[in-house]
């Protein structure tokens, strides 16, 4: 990896980490969700400070330039993250639907209850 790339990587990973920490500090994210981003930020820093890590792995895999390995790896991590988020959105939609239906049903039951109460009073 060239020196410029390393400097840019270190700067970018530090800034990203700072940004993530700021958001966590202000409680904008749930801790369970923040953990992924903390780990990713730490990994970014580790890779940029110790470029030997991607170099060794890319040599093992037969990839010519470490930067190509970085691209591949990042794309893979993001793909997995997108997939897990997609699963989460599906779950959220299901829960929202159940919740909405449940509220409507409970309201109806309440109406019925009040109707019978009124009828009984008369």
């Amino acid at each position: 990896m060239s020196l410029v790339l390393r400097v840019v990587l270190i700067a970018a990973s530090l800034l990203t980490t700072l940004y993530i920490m700021k958001k966590i500090r202000n409680s904008k994210a749930q801790i369970e969700d923040a953990i992924f981003w903390i780990l990713l930020a730490l990994m970014l820093i580790a890779i940029s400070v110790f470029p030997g890590i991607p170099t060794v792995i890319s040599r093992m895999l037969g990839i010519m330039a470490p930067v190509n390995f970085l691209f591949l790896f990042m794309i893979f991590v993001l793909l997995v993250k997108i997939f897990s988020m997609s699963l989460k959105v599906s779950a959220l939609e299901t829960r929202l639907r159940n919740l909405t239906q449940e509220i409507a049903i409970r309201n109806k039951k309440e109406d019925e209850y009040e109707e019978t109460k009124e009828a009984n009073e008369k």
């Binding site: 966590i24 500090r25 202000n26 409680s27 801790i31 953990i35 903390i38 780990l39």
Partner: peptide, 18 residues
């Protein structure tokens, strides 16, 4: 355990005291 470790040692350290 991993979640608790990151949360206790890292997240809560940066978290604003509300």
């Amino acid at each position: 355990m991993v979640q608790m470790a990151i949360s206790i040692l890292f997240v809560q350290a940066f978290r604003k005291k509300e």
